[in-house]
Design a binder for these strands. Structure first.
Lengths: 203, 203, 203, 203
DNA sequence: GATGAATGAGGGTTCATTCAT
DNA sequence: CATGAATGAACCCTCATTCAT
């Protein structure tokens, strides 16, 4: 039976400062493990130990392993939305190329920050029921991009947004796997890919 | 310690007709499970059961779970190479757009055949040591694409080949996740993306 | 590949009273099984069951079956060293025959306590990498005996110590297998064997 | 339930030359495995493979794994009896020291021939029901030794025979484990041990 | 007889989760 | 609330033995 969405919410709103801290420690430990040893090495006992918390406490804050993952995903989505928001904002009055460049760089920075982590979370995301907030964050982000593309006169902006992000994701993921680390070079290729796709579409 | 490559080779060359059948059944069952329930649901007991075979038999033919995965990956790579080979062949005397179109369609068909499976295998592939044959199949495929791009006058064809494939992979994967199934539409967008990227590069 | 020494160390220092108890129960159950049904009947499930503990608990304290064996061996070596130490101490100012008698009796008592167990552990010991403490316990014991023999003017005391212990071990083992239980009689024969060997050597 | 003795007999008296050969191949393969990789590595599939025989055929000749072991033990006992017989024969008219020397050397040669094998078989022997022939071989050997000791005027010759053999076994086993290979040195120490024990007894 | 494919009980180990203290 | 001991379902894999061909 697929796990219910209720089970993905943090068990309690941590009011006390101390609680908020513990909660953050747990998430940080989990991030760390995923980034360094991979998603398959993530297990609740290890997280608790690395967070300096007893396994019992961990279960006070999160109803289960997947809730931790869900929280990480939510966090990632929040960060991402913020980055995109800022990029969109700064690109408000720019031409297509510049606006795209800002978006692409935002996405790229996101992946470069914690390459393995973001990859793993995106995978996990697709195999899990998403809570309402995460879904909202995803739609907000999509709407934002769609808005930009629409304003720039792109046809079928919903689809274009999807494709453009997927392209970037694919290229960046593959480049990272191949060991590339040159931000500027990657940024260049992404811009070319995106503008190429968009240009070809409107041509 | 990362698992040794030896552990990925089939254990026994099936000599009798019966055993060739068993071997195939095991691989088919594994494919099926991955396609339907995901890579994380793959386990040797389930494979054996679904293949209508005892767990002991499974281990006669494969030294372990990962050997089954390795075999599936090898199979996928063989199919893919064959598809690409034929596309390259048919595109021999065509112009850039047509040649690209053939390649893109080959790749697309590949993904559409078993969407979840090919995705999962590609992921698994990146977390496993590859046997010699699989590596050779990958390089052969890469060389083929590089050759085509080179002949078409693309600059830095190695990188372009990587990017182009990664873009396609990204777009297709995302589209499939979103439930798209319209081959022609997808084919169109992929062509646009690829020619856009390549065109922008030479511009 | 021979198992690494790391795998032989207990996993967790028991902190609470309850867990110290569990740990001891596990070792006692293992001892029991070996003593009664033989080394080949030792398996983790049985140990857990007999210890009245879940299999999971067993693995909390021991990283595997061999770690349990290693712990038993260490325990045996500790006891043995203590026994020998006390025998050497009490024999400090005695003549050869008495000193030997004390040592022989110490060794004999050791075997009589848990005949099958000590035999099995000694066998297991020779087929396993030893952790540092166990090795130290063995050398300490050897050094102790060598010291005594040396003080008594025995030539080549290292070799004599080895031979003497091996002789005793052989005789006792065989006698126990044959069902003998008369401590005094055995003690007598061992003294004869040892003094005979040592006497013949110096003659 | 302890396995019945009937199950330890070879399944059929091989009349044909070919059969006898297969049977010997199986036993040779088993010996080899034990000598090189230890008793715990002995398994029927491996034996069959190493013997160049199908697993099915192996079971034609031996009703099970333990029957193979039993056959090896019987063989060992036969050899041993023959060696002892010859040593006793040659020592017929010699003095105690020489007679003992011959016996000791016979035993020593036995162990040196296949150190690990003889050790393993002796261990296996003590954990298995013995068939009539093996038991007879053991008693015959014992009787032979007892006869010699009796003739030489040793008191309680049954016990002395046991002890003497056990001593030798212990010393040789330990020396081999320690890597010694010098036959003459070992022979010397064994003679000293045996004559010391026997001398001390009669003194 | 010979073959080797197939079987499945048995044993090792992990890890998400619960609960007594 | 925190702790960490305990649980046991779920997996992985081996190997003695059987049986259809």
């Amino acid at each position: 039976m697929p796990e219910t969405i209720a089970a993905l919410h943090p068990r309690k709103r941590p009011r006390q400062e101390r609680s908020r801290r513990t909660c953050a420690d747990i998430l940080a430990a989990a991030s760390d493990i995923i980034e360094v040893k991979g998603l398959s090495a993530l297990n609740t006992n290890l997280v608790a130990e690395r967070a300096g918390v007893s396994i019992g406490s961990l279960y006070q804050y999160f109803p289960g392993k997947n809730a931790i993952l869900a929280a990480l995903i939510r966090e990632m989505r929040r960060d991402m939305l913020a980055d995109i928001l800022s990029a969109v904002d700064r690109g408000k009055n720019q031409d297509l190329a510049s606006a795209i460049g800002l978006l692409v760089d935002a996405s790229l920075r996101h992946h470069l920050r914690h390459p393995a982590l973001s990859e793993a979370l995106e995978r996990a995301e697709s195999e899990m029921p998403l809570d309402a907030e995460t879904q909202a964050l995803k739609s907000d982000k999509a709407a934002l991009i769609v808005g930009v593309l629409d304003r720039l006169g792109i046809e079928n902006p919903r689809q274009a947004a999807m494709d453009v992000f997927a392209m970037c994701h694919g290229i960046v993921h593959t480049a990272l796997q191949a060991g590339e680390t040159d931000f500027d070079d990657l940024s260049d290729r992404l811009r070319r890919a995106v503008t190429g796709y968009l240009g070809a579409g409107t041509a």
